[in-house]
Simulated assay, not measured.
Amino acid sequence: MPLVLRFNLLRNNIWGSRSVRFLKQLAGFSSGKLLQPGTYEKRHFTTKLTDTASWHKTDSGSCSPSIPPLWLQQTSEHDNPGTVLVFDIETTGFLHADHRIIEFALRDLSGGKNCTFETLINPERNVPIYAAKANKITTELVCRPDVPRFSDVLPLLLAYIQRRQAPGKPVLWVAHNAKQFDIPFLMQEFERCSAQVPADWLFVDSLCLARKLKKLDGNIGHVNLEALGKHYGIIFKGPSHRAMPDVQALSEIFQKITLGLKLTRDGLMSEASIFYDFRKVSRI
């Protein structure tokens, strides 16, 4: 089945549930703001749920053979860290107050079918030359009517995460340099859409964790994503400075960091609480 058709079937299935209709109303969106199915057929890139059914193994729940589901030390046999999403964004520039998101990708570390989500995003502004040189995302690539705006993507993203979320458990978002970069950009896009970040979304900065691990492991040098990839022998698969290749690499790096720090669920939640407080007091 072609990817575009498969995506449209998945999208229709997601949007059919009562909980998703409630999310649409809560976020202030109507289905009329979504791109029509025909527009996806004309696009080279598309918002998509990656169907990896052929990779899925019921014994491991892995989304990719090279990335096992997240393992955390548990404080009890019933302990569960909830849904852990590794995400990354590409933007038109460095400062969230002046720039916009142009690409978004995430991976659910619990694995399974459709455990990734990625899309280009129309920023409704030009992409500066210096940004386009870094990630090869140009104004001509994203500023087109068939590339969704963040307001088009948000209802589908909320619905996707609601379907992946464990009942009664939080959603832990993980990004490298999340506090200074990814979180402010994400929050600003929510504000532009007059939507609130769900209260049970918590954020973890893997850069902060890597700095803690560096104090314990003298063999770790620089803690940027590329350096950590080299340290752990992880190969970036795909174009450099693109959201999904960075997500795939960080998914593996994050596993290594949590094992190195011997993080329990409580330890990870403690890291997340820092950014939960940061979210409450921040004003963008």
Rank of each mutant, 00 (worst) to 15 (best):
Y40F: 15
S31R: 08
R100F: 04
T39H: 09
L207A: 05
C115V: 05
E191P: 00
F45P: 00
S54F: 10
E140T: 12
W55V: 01
E118T: 09
I183H: 03
E252W: 00
W173V: 09
F7W: 13
L202K: 12
H56R: 08
L10A: 15
D205Q: 07
P155E: 03
Q74M: 07
D108F: 13
I284G: 14
N177K: 11
L23A: 06
I89V: 10
P128E: 09
F278Q: 08
N8A: 02
V142S: 01
L5I: 07
E90K: 10
A131M: 01
T52F: 09
N122M: 03
F203G: 05
V204I: 14
Q188H: 12
Q248G: 00
D98G: 05
G61Q: 09
A195C: 15
P128I: 08
L95P: 00
A159R: 04
P148F: 02
G38F: 09
L228F: 07
N126L: 08
R265F: 02
L225E: 05
N80M: 04
D200F: 07
P81W: 06
L186Y: 00
Y276S: 13
F236S: 06
S240D: 10
G267P: 08
V223W: 04
I101K: 05
G32L: 06
W71I: 11
R21I: 01
T50L: 15
S30C: 10
T116V: 08
H176S: 06
V223C: 15
N219E: 11
Q255P: 01
G82Y: 08
I89G: 01
I257V: 14
I253F: 03
Q255S: 15
V86K: 08
H44A: 13
F185P: 10
Q25D: 12
F29T: 00
F150V: 06
G233M: 08
W55N: 15
L72I: 15
R211T: 05
C63I: 00
E140G: 06
I102D: 09
H99Y: 03
V84D: 06
K215P: 03
P2I: 07
G260V: 03
Y232C: 04
T116F: 06
L209C: 15
S66L: 13
F185I: 09
Q25T: 12
K212M: 10
K230C: 07
A249S: 14
H56I: 05
I129P: 00
F29K: 00
D205T: 09
F7R: 11
Q165V: 04
S240Y: 10
S194G: 02
L259P: 00
K169W: 01
I257A: 05
A175K: 03
R43A: 15
T58G: 03
K212F: 01
L186P: 01
K133Q: 13
S206V: 07
E252R: 12
D200A: 07
K48I: 07
V153N: 02
A132W: 03
L213E: 09
T50Q: 12
F278D: 10
S62H: 14
T91W: 02
M244L: 15
E191G: 04
G16C: 11
P145R: 13
D59Y: 11
G16R: 13
F117P: 07
G112R: 06
I161M: 03
T91F: 03
L259I: 11
L35W: 04
E124G: 01
V4E: 13
H231S: 04
